[in-house]
Simulated scan of single mutants.
Amino acid sequence: MRSESPINPQFFLDARLRAFILGIMVVAFFFGFADQIYNRNFERLHIFLFNLCAGGFIILYHTENTARPSFRCYLFLAASLLYALLAFFNLYPPAALLSLFLGVLVETIRTRVFPIIPHDLFDPSVPVSDKYHHASILCLSLALFIATFVLLNSTALHWLPYKSLTLNVFFLGFSFPVSLITMSVMFSFIRRDDGPLSHLLQQAFFWLINLGVIVFFLFIIFEMQLAKVTIAVTLFLTVLLIFAFFLRLGMNMQQKQFLLSGMVFLVFTGITGIFYIILARYPAAYEQWGRLLLSCHAYLSLYGWSLSGLLILIRWNDFPLRLNSLLIIFFHWLVIGILAPIGKTDPFTAVAAVICYCLFLHLFFAETKVRPMNGAQQHERR
């Protein structure tokens, strides 16, 4: 959250807009299992719909901080949906042009709120929640610009010969902006009166996460296996430290429970990521367990950690909610931690996962805001 600009009190209160964005998330979740119905790689569509279309729209709408999304936001949503379809059908030349257009569109929104040159990221006086927010939208535009080059390099230019520099590998980069906006949400609930050590740690966490992910992506491109394990372990340890930090200094609010659950998802994302990198060195074991482990990693990251932050952001003006937080969190773990990964290889579990995912979203959004009691009600309770 930009500290000097609290979230607009009308942010995401439009029920139809909420339903549409949640619908995209449900469709994205469904496409994660669609290859069991029709033998085609739906993974790209699954990732794009959640990260770029739904996640990107939420980031831009949040950045504008207006009661209703602007025309630019809606244009991004429509163009990103078209982009996801073009990429899915391997129509790379028009997808590259659209990716470039989307990157420019994101920049027109970013530069209205944040500096054109992101010098605020290096300013120690800027709250870390604001830095994560700026880094999120900046990474979104950079991901789109880089995707333009990746698409052209794969089809026409062939300037860089690295076999890992493909859209199938690179589309995972669209998950980073959504992860960063969740970090922004989480760090907005950190107490700000705990002295210089707390401030220093938050700044260190910010750079460790951002530089770590960027370096990790470069190691993937250059296929540096040992370096990938090293940076993955470093990121995992950083996540553990952030988890302990938030557990200690996070404000005691209902949102903290959901964010702590999201952090546990992120911890397990780190564990599965490390094991997946190691497993890739053993072909027999990788053939047997690789897909299940990668599915666990993806679902824990996207629909566990990132979704936790996005849901809190969408319902920002509704908290505190009249619901059993622990029960909702348990159900979230059942769907994402167990049913979804198993559903990648079992169609009946996949159907159960999609149904339970819809039920989870319904339970989270059906409950209303807790209304403050008037004097007579308080006296009656006493």
Results as ranks from 00 to 15, higher is better:
residue 1 M to F: 02
residue 3 S to A: 14
residue 14 D to I: 07
residue 17 L to T: 12
residue 20 F to D: 07
residue 25 M to W: 04
residue 32 G to M: 05
residue 39 N to H: 13
residue 39 N to R: 14
residue 40 R to I: 05
residue 50 F to S: 12
residue 51 N to F: 15
residue 52 L to C: 07
residue 54 A to I: 03
residue 56 G to H: 11
residue 57 F to N: 10
residue 57 F to Q: 01
residue 57 F to C: 06
residue 58 I to S: 09
residue 62 H to L: 13
residue 63 T to F: 05
residue 65 N to Q: 01
residue 68 R to V: 13
residue 72 R to K: 09
residue 75 L to A: 15
residue 85 L to W: 11
residue 88 F to P: 09
residue 99 S to V: 09
residue 105 L to S: 07
residue 106 V to R: 09
residue 107 E to Y: 10
residue 108 T to V: 04
residue 111 T to H: 14
residue 112 R to I: 01
residue 119 H to S: 09
residue 125 S to E: 14
residue 127 P to N: 03
residue 128 V to T: 12
residue 129 S to N: 10
residue 135 A to T: 04
residue 140 L to Y: 03
residue 150 V to Y: 07
residue 150 V to I: 11
residue 150 V to C: 04
residue 151 L to F: 07
residue 153 N to A: 00
residue 155 T to N: 02
residue 157 L to W: 14
residue 158 H to G: 12
residue 159 W to P: 09
residue 165 L to K: 00
residue 175 S to Y: 10
residue 177 P to S: 12
residue 179 S to H: 08
residue 180 L to P: 05
residue 183 M to R: 13
residue 186 M to P: 06
residue 186 M to A: 06
residue 190 I to T: 02
residue 190 I to P: 01
residue 191 R to F: 00
residue 193 D to W: 00
residue 197 L to T: 14
residue 199 H to K: 03
residue 200 L to I: 12
residue 201 L to K: 09
residue 203 Q to N: 15
residue 209 I to M: 15
residue 211 L to K: 02
residue 212 G to Y: 07
residue 213 V to K: 02
residue 219 F to W: 05
residue 222 F to D: 09
residue 225 Q to L: 08
residue 227 A to S: 05
residue 228 K to I: 07
residue 239 V to E: 10
residue 240 L to M: 06
residue 242 I to D: 02
residue 244 A to M: 11
residue 254 Q to Y: 04
residue 261 S to M: 06
residue 265 F to K: 01
residue 270 G to F: 03
residue 274 I to A: 03
residue 274 I to S: 06
residue 278 I to V: 15
residue 279 L to Q: 05
residue 279 L to R: 06
residue 279 L to T: 02
residue 282 Y to C: 06
residue 283 P to F: 00
residue 288 Q to W: 10
residue 289 W to F: 15
residue 292 L to K: 10
residue 294 L to V: 07
residue 297 H to R: 12
residue 299 Y to C: 06
residue 307 L to M: 08
residue 310 L to T: 12
residue 313 L to F: 02
residue 316 W to K: 04
residue 330 F to T: 13
residue 333 W to Q: 10
residue 338 I to Q: 05
residue 339 L to E: 07
residue 343 G to C: 01
residue 344 K to V: 07
residue 358 C to K: 03
residue 361 L to Y: 11
residue 362 H to G: 13
residue 363 L to R: 09
residue 364 F to E: 08
residue 369 K to I: 08
residue 375 G to S: 15
residue 375 G to E: 15
residue 377 Q to G: 13
residue 378 Q to E: 07
